[in-house]
Design a protein around this nucleic acid. Structure first.
Lengths: 231, 231
DNA sequence: GTATTTTTGTGCTCTAAAACATAGTTATAC
DNA sequence: GTATAACTATGTTTTAGAGCACAAAAATAC
């Protein structure tokens, strides 16, 4: 596809919202932003709560999930530092449909949505930033629906691992830069914990990964991607 | 939740984009909009194609779907008249991830995205319309992910029927105002055609619905919603 | 109007993955 | 440092739902 000029210019010139703002707007956010620290396992917002703030993760890792039936929960999105989140519900005029929880000690900056909307009214680039971000996320959600419902267990787990690699990167020794419990890995790839463990062990036997507790070292990324793609 | 003032005002004052525009903007769209007719089963845009137009369904019914593995396709969204669609991919800077197909003879107005972006730059309300719409759709997609992966067959089919009732309404005699093939019903609720047929027959036995070919008459809507909710 | 294709309906078989059970292991609390 | 809880691992059983086969019925083509 030939990317449209405006979008190309847009994505080249800005990597995040901050760069789109003038000094006055930045000060508005500095004055109204609230910095908060969350411990591992602490919840940042809850399903059912009324949204008032947009949040920016400054440090740490956060999972966005939904509680399903019979205690099974489903991870919807994962947030990494300098990512904005928690704005969808406000824009939709809804309560939060998801819960956000810190995976590890995290620092979050909360900015009142009123301030954001104020800025948006005067700054088209900020509007477009959200439109673009929401559009990308909607595409991801649509893809995920098909992947989670149609791929088999191996494919789903492999996909989750690829996703983690792409989101958080690999260390020098090829260890995935996030340590998840088997349970979280399961709720990311829509399966039971037992099956996540079993399938993971399978990957070790096939020499695709090596395990050391929650550390996952990727041995054969190509094969992992292949398993993910073929379902 | 107490809906934020801006959003309340917004949703009260406008039901669709058209009302947000001034005369000049309306003329711009009138001049550049292309009206097209599609026969039943005809495709409107394809997965992989580069997006150039936003579309508004003027008449008919359209399904947005993704091809999955082994011929199984998944309906992602369904469009009814005076709904806008086909804009996500452009905003995300991607090719279409889905295919749109007319369920029945349909009329579509295509407006070049360049024109839309031009209007957006000058009209904040139009920006906010898309932000709101994308946010709502993202919420729906997230809900769907959990529903389709965690509910059992009966719950998923019931949910699909409730969705059809809410999208297209009921006739005077309680017939759902859209006639889908068993196959489409299956790909809406993520199951095989056989299971869609079987489960539908089950609902007839339980006196929840009555069937007459593709006509579905709802007898006990409350029970249908209950089945949908409990999974 | 007949032929061909598509859709619908059912029965039967098979399997992927859930559910359950139990035990070892590693954190966390006090 | 011991107790308690949370997590990991693996074996066994059960089942929901896919897959397949085959008719009958309906729609479409010619």
């Amino acid at each position: 596809m030939q990317i449209q000029d405006e979008i190309l210019d847009f994505s080249k010139s800005v990597k995040e919202v901050w760069k789109l703002l003038n000094n006055q707007e930045r000060n508005l956010i500095r004055k109204n932003g609230i910095i908060q620290h969350f411990k591992k396992g602490q919840q940042i917002y809850y399903e059912g709560e009324a949204p008032k703030f947009m949040m920016c993760l400054l440090k740490g890792k956060v999972k966005i999930f939904k509680d399903g039936f019979g205690g099974r929960s489903q991870i919807i999105r994962m947030i990494r530092p300098i990512q904005y989140f928690a704005y969808r519900a406000y824009f939709a005029g809804e309560d939060y449909l998801t819960t956000a929880e810190a995976f590890e000690a995290s620092t979050v900056c909360s900015i009142p949505m009123k301030i954001i909307v104020e800025i948006m009214q005067r700054n088209y680039q900020v509007c477009y930033y959200f439109i673009r971000q929401l559009s990308v996320d909607l595409g991801i959600a649509d893809e995920r629906t098909v992947n989670l419902t149609q791929k088999h267990i191996r494919g789903r787990l492999a996909e989750a691992l690829v996703f983690l690699i792409e989101s958080y990167g690999l260390e020098d020794d090829n260890t995935i830069n996030i340590y998840l419990s088997r349970d979280d890995l399961a709720s990311l790839s829509n399966m039971t914990t037992s099956n996540a463990i079993r399938t993971l062990t399978g990957f070790v036997t096939e020499r695709v990964i090596v395990l050391d507790g929650r550390k996952i070292k990727v041995i054969d990324e190509e094969k992992l991607r292949k398993i993910s793609k073929l379902g």
